[in-house]
Each structure stands twice: as structure tokens, then as C-alpha cells.
Write a protein that binds this DNA or RNA. Structure first.
Length: 606
RNA sequence: GGUCGCGUAGCUCAGCUGGAUAGAGCAUCUGCCUUCUAAGCAGACGGUCGAAGGUUCGAAUCCUUCCGCGAUCACCA
């Protein structure tokens, strides 16, 4: 005998597992056949009912008219299952009406659980989520924003689903790109610093990256007019050669170069820190390419002796992945230096050494690197690392402008700081127009505008499936109405307003007696609340914040409809009123919780 | 050219482990603020789900081919 009471506590699945057993029982009794499984779906809004049993798949086992079969099973369920209070059959769909008591019981469970939907215990095995990983020669732009929001949110979602998580990034602090900025600064900078210029450090360094490119292009042009072949000119422009020389000096540990490198990077880090803080993202641990770029060479040497890799005549080391449908891929240059792949192999292994509980990793990197990660994961698998089967490339589509790709060198980028400021400013303009915050201090207002502006931006980016590319048109501002972050924040603020008023009139809703009547909107809201835990799981399995965003939107739409149709504080029946207050409170909590997973804050007023 | 991804309303997107008449938002139009915040609610308009075949009782969803867009195929990262 099944303990139904225990099943009740397991969210939406509870009723379905009961029904599954009972439907099978019905079919066995009525048609003397055993059914391997039963297919359920939520009943469509246009029909009466809560849960629908799809009869069609049963026709393989039970011969007959689907409508009649549905009818017979419906009768049986109504008779034998307390929760089933009614049914109707339309074509091959058996729509079951589930009684109010089931939902009020569910709500009691939800209302009494702290951090509803969020895993209370974390796994022993951890997953490391890498995101951001910028170059240190220029400021962060919209592309980084998508990366940061995705990585941060996925990390939070994994935690909520019960995974221990380390957030990390690998900072690309060395290489030709930073040397270009350094060289240009030396040449044109007049010792300018963030202090003397009043510029944010990353912006200052970025300016010199652009300055380098300008000078470089000019030199190419001059060489071409002197009759030099364009390709040759691109390779031999003096300023580029000088940058390359600088990189060599850096690798050799040249004191002056290293000192300048440290100084300029520190400016950039200060700038980044400010941007991250503004964006509301953080990291548990940092890796720097200057520490890791030599890693991996030993692993390659070891793999060579074990036959995972092979050496070509010129001394370069490769892996043959043709049996996997891929190509040969280089893992060590002929001069023995590391390539990107070498470094990534080494860094992955280093991370597990540093954090022995890491059993998997998520790399938040654009889809232009799909091939690279496919190869990286295969190599780690061939090297025999147990965790190699738990590697995931969180690949996302590029953020393009109407004019095409963003290019830092050409200045066609949407700067992250500017964008966030503009969003906050727009939020402020709308709020001023509405004028609901007269008694807020200037500081409070600015904080709120930032929260709303960022909420709009984050939601706008996160609600889209990561795989899809985003076309961002700076001319058309991000919406603040409809399916947007502010819409959801607004609903939250309304709920808080109700709760404040409830408190004032001494109706916190605590200790309410059980109600038996449910308004259809209340029932829908409870159903929607019941979906939250499985939504988190689904979002974690799919590494998709978009699922959380869509869920929250549906919940909020449902609440607004309820709010419009049903009086909460004005309800005369005390139990009914208390229940509605509790329901509103819980919806607010779930909005807050879900938005936290997206890295979006919620306001008490707006 | 090979490989991978995407293609759904004028625009931005859901739906994709197959199920009922394909859903939202924006835009356009119509109602609703002396009642819990109108950044809201209710409604109208709007679709050959890129195209064609196939599998199935049933396809936006799965398979094949084609078209369009993007990415990638470096001793760059």
C-alpha cells in the first residue's frame, strides 16, 4: 500500500505519481492489461481541469475508442481517488479536476518551507564555473556582460540545485595584446595615470590599445605607399615588431617591461573591480594566465610517452582526433612553447589540484570556440582524467550590433559601464515621471534606479536562450514594460506594499486557519508555485537561466491577474484574507529567490 | 568545401524529451485609476512555425534533403 500522505509533500509530481498508479490500476481492472507508463500534461487553460491524462498512447495496449476509454478511466479515478473531484473527456484527452484540498495542502507545505525550492545541502563534489576571463588591454563591453551574467547566473542556479560551486575566471594578463597597450602608452602616454587623467584604469589602458592600432595602421599605410606588399607591411610594421620584442622581453623577465606590465595591469584590475561590483558579479578564486601559460607542457610530455600525442618531424606535438571525426590538433609548438590548448589542459588539471573536490567544470565562453572546447574535452578524456566526462562548454551566441560585430580596436563597442549607467538613467527618468518616490532620499533613489536599470538589462539578456545570438540595437532602448525585469520587480514591490499594509492593520496572515474555497486564480498561483523546484532543477540540467526568467514571468503574470481580480486586504472573511496575504508573501519570496538566481535585485517600492 | 549552431506574428522571444485551436511582450487599436502602486489588468488585430519530403493515430518539436544567416576548420587566443 502506498503512503499517499508522504507523496503529497513531493510537489506537483506527487499527484502525478498517485494518478499513475491509479490509472494503471484502472486499466488493469477495466481492460485486463498492464500499462508500462501513463502520459500526463497540465490541462490547457481553455478546458476545465488541472491534470490531463493522454489516452492515445494507451491505444497500443487497449483496443477501443479513446474517448470511451477516457470516460471509463475517468469514472474509475473519480470513484477511487479522493483528489479527483471531477473529469471530462475531449477527444483522447481525459481532463481531471483536482480538488481544492490538494492545493491548499500543497500551499501549506510551500508556505512552511524556508528557502522553498532551494537545495538546503550542497554536494560534496564541486563544480568550477569559469566566466568573464577578459583580456587586460581594454575595458569590458556588452559581449562580456552577456558572458558575466550567464556565468554568474548558472553558478547560482547550480548552487540552488544542490551543487557546490566555485566561481572562477582566468585573466588573460599577458601576451601581445597587453604589450601593444604598454608600447603605445610608453610612446604617447606622457606618463599619464588614472590619477592624473581621472580616467578609469581599464579605460585608460584601452585607449592606448586603440592608439596602438591607429599608429600600426598608419605605418602599414605608409609602407604600402612606399611600395611594400600589404601582407608584408602588416607583418613588418616597426611598431608591431617592437611590441613583439616587448613580449619577448616580458617572457625573459626584463625588469622594466615587467614593472610597466604590473603597473598597467593593476590599473585595469581596479577598473574591472568597479565594473564587476556595479554588475553584481563575483568570483571565489582567480587564475592569471601569466601563472598558467606555461602549465600543461609536462602533461603533454607525459601524454607523449603514453602515446596519447605524437611528434612530427619538426618537433611539434599533435593529437590525432580523426577517429572522433575531428582533425589533428597541435598541442605544443615546434620550438617547444605552449599554445592556447596546452595552457588550457594545464589549467584544468591545476584547478583540480588546487581544489581536489572539483569533479567537473563549466566554461562560459562564446560559441566561436565550440571547436576548441570539443577538442580540449576530448584530450582530457584521452589523458584519462575521471572528471573529463563532467566538463561543459556553456556556449553562447555573440552579441552583435546592427552594424555587425563589435570591435574594440575600431571603437565600435557598447561599453559595459556606459551601458549600465544609461540603463540606470533611463530607469530614473521613468521613475521621476511616475513620481511615486517623493519621500526617498537622493541616495535611495539612485540605488533604486541602478537596481531597476540593471534588472532591465540583465533580464533582457538572460531571458534569451544562451545559444541564440543577440542583436543589440543601442538606438532602441531596452524595454521597461511587458516581459521585462522591471515588470517583475514592480510586482514584487506591490506585494511588499500589501505586506506592509497588512502589518499595519495587524493582519500578517500568520496562524490562518485552513480555507476550503479557492478562487481559480489562487489555484493557478499555487500550481505555478509548485513548479518552482523542478524549474530550478531543469535550469541546472540545461545550464539555462532563461528557464528561470520565463518561469518568473509566468508566475508574475498570474499574480498580477489575481491582484486585479481578487481583493486581498479588502476581503471580509478573515481566513480568506489571511490566506491571500500568505499567498502573496510566498509569491514575493519566490520572485526574490528566482531573481537572485539571475543576479537581479528586487525593490520594496518603485 | 567539411563540421557545428540558428531560422516561429511587423519587431524581440517562449514552446522543441512528439499531443488538443502554436503562446507572450513590443508596436497598432478598444476598454479599466474617488477601491490593496496603471512600470498594471482585460480585450482586438496579427502565423504557409525557412522550404520540400519522410516516420507517426498525431510533427513547430524526430529523420532526410535543400535554402538563408552565423561561427569554425592557425605552430592566434
Amino acid at each position: 500500500m502506498i503512503n499517499f500522505a508522504a507523496l503529497y509533500t513531493q510537489s506537483q509530481m506527487g499527484i502525478e505519481s498517485i494518478l499513475e498508479i491509479k490509472v494503471k490500476e484502472a486499466v488493469a481492472e477495466l481492460f485486463s492489461t498492464e500499462l508500462p507508463q501513463v502520459e500526463f500534461q497540465p490541462t490547457r487553460k481553455d478546458f476545465e481541469g488541472d491534470v490531463t491524462v493522454v489516452v492515445f498512447p494507451m491505444l497500443r495496449y487497449v483496443k477501443g475508442n479513446p474517448a470511451q476509454i477516457g470516460e471509463q478511466i475517468g469514472e474509475y479515478l473519480k470513484e477511487k481517488v479522493d483528489e479527483v473531484s471531477g473529469f471530462n473527456v475531449i477527444k483522447g484527452f481525459l481532463n481531471l479536476v483536482i480538488g481544492n484540498q490538494f492545493y491548499t495542502n500543497q500551499f501549506d507545505e510551500i508556505a512552511s518551507s524556508e528557502n522553498y525550492g532551494i537545495a538546503s545541502k550542497l554536494s560534496n563534489e564541486a563544480v568550477m564555473v569559469e566566466y568573464s576571463s577578459p583580456n587586460t588591454n581594454k575595458p569590458l563591453h556588452l559581449g562580456h556582460v552577456r558572458n558575466n551574467l550567464l556565468g554568474y547566473s548558472v553558478a547560482e542556479i547550480l548552487k540552488a540545485a544542490g551543487k557546490k560551486v566555485y566561481k572562477t575566471q582566468i585573466i588573460n594578463d599577458r601576451g601581445i595584446h597587453i604589450c601593444k597597450s604598454m608600447l603605445a602608452w610608453k610612446r604617447f602616454g606622457n606618463q599619464e595615470t588614472p590619477e592624473t587623467s581621472g580616467l578609469k584604469g581599464d579605460k585608460l589602458v584601452g585607449n592606448y590599445y586603440v592608439a596602438f592600432d591607429k599608429a600600426y595602421k598608419k605605418q602599414i599605410e605608409d609602407l604600402v605607399t612606399q611600395g611594400v606588399d600589404k601582407k608584408m607591411a602588416e607583418k613588418e610594421a616597426p611598431i608591431l615588431l617592437e611590441a613583439q620584442e616587448m613580449l619577448q622581453k616580458w617572457e625573459a623577465g626584463d625588469e622594466e617591461v615587467v614593472s610597466l606590465w604590473k603597473t598597467m595591469n593593476s590599473w585595469v584590475y581596479e577598473g574591472f573591480a568597479e565594473t564587476y561590483k556595479n554588475m553584481g558579479v563575483d568570483f571565489d578564486t582567480l587564475y592569471y594566465e601569466s601563472d598558467t601559460y606555461l602549465l600543461g607542457k609536462d602533461v603533454v610530455a607525459d601524454g607523449l610517452t603514453r602515446g596519447v600525442f605524437f611528434k612530427k618531424e619538426d618537433g611539434s606535438v599533435w593529437i590525432d582526433l580523426t577517429d572522433e571525426g575531428l582533425d589533428e590538433k597541435i598541442v605544443l609548438r615546434s620550438d617547444g612553447t605552449a599554445v592556447y590548448m596546452t595552457q588550457d589542459i594545464g589549467t584544468a588539471i591545476q584547478r583540480v589540484k588546487d581544489y581536489p573536490d572539483v569533479g567537473g567544470m563549466v566554461y562560459t565562453v562564446g560559441n566561436e570556440q565550440d571547436y576548441h572546447f570539443k577538442v580540449l574535452f576530448l584530450i582530457l578524456k584521452k589523458l584519462g582524467y575521471s572528471w573529463s566526462s563532467n566538463l561543459f562548454h556553456l556556449s553562447y551566441g555573440m552579441v552583435d550590433l546592427p552594424s555587425g560585430k563589435m570591435k574594440s580596436r575600431e571603437g565600435t563597442v557598447v561599453d559595459a559601464d556606459d551601458l549600465m549607467n544609461e540603463m540606470a538613467q533611463t530607469a530614473g527618468e521613468i521613475a521621476e515621471e511616475l513620481g511615486k518616490l517623493e519621500d526617498y532620499s537622493e541616495e535611495q533613489k539612485l540605488g533604486l534606479y541602478h537596481m531597476i536599470g540593471l534588472g532591465a538589462l540583465k533580464y533582457y539578456i538572460l531571458k534569451v536562450d544562451p545559444k541564440k545570438r543577440i542583436l543589440f540595437n543601442p538606438e532602441e532602448s531596452v524595454d521597461f514594460q511587458g516581459n521585462t525585469g522591471p515588470f517583475i520587480q514592480y510586482t514584487y514591490a506591490r506585494i511588499q506594499s500589501i505586506l506592509r499594509k497588512a502589518e499595519e492593520i495587524g493582519a500578517s496572515g500568520e496562524g490562518a486557519a485552513k480555507i476550503t474555497d479557492l478562487h481559480p486564480k489562487e489555484k493557478e498561483l499555487i500550481k505555478q508555485l509548485m513548479l518552482y523546484p523542478e524549474t530550478i532543477q531543469l535550469a541546472a540540467e540545461n545550464y539555462s537561466p532563461a528557464l528561470i526568467a520565463n518561469y518568473t514571468y509566468d508566475l508574475v503574470k498570474e499574480f498580477n491577474s489575481f491582484y486585479q481580480q481578487v481583493s486581498i486586504l479588502g476581503e471580509s472573511d478573515e481566513n480568506q484574507r489571511f490566506f491571500r496575504i500568505q499567498l502573496s508573501r510566498k509569491v514575493g519570496e519566490v520572485i526574490e529567490s528566482a531573481f537572485k538566481l539571475l543576479g537581479i535585485g528586487v525593490p520594496d517600492r518603485m
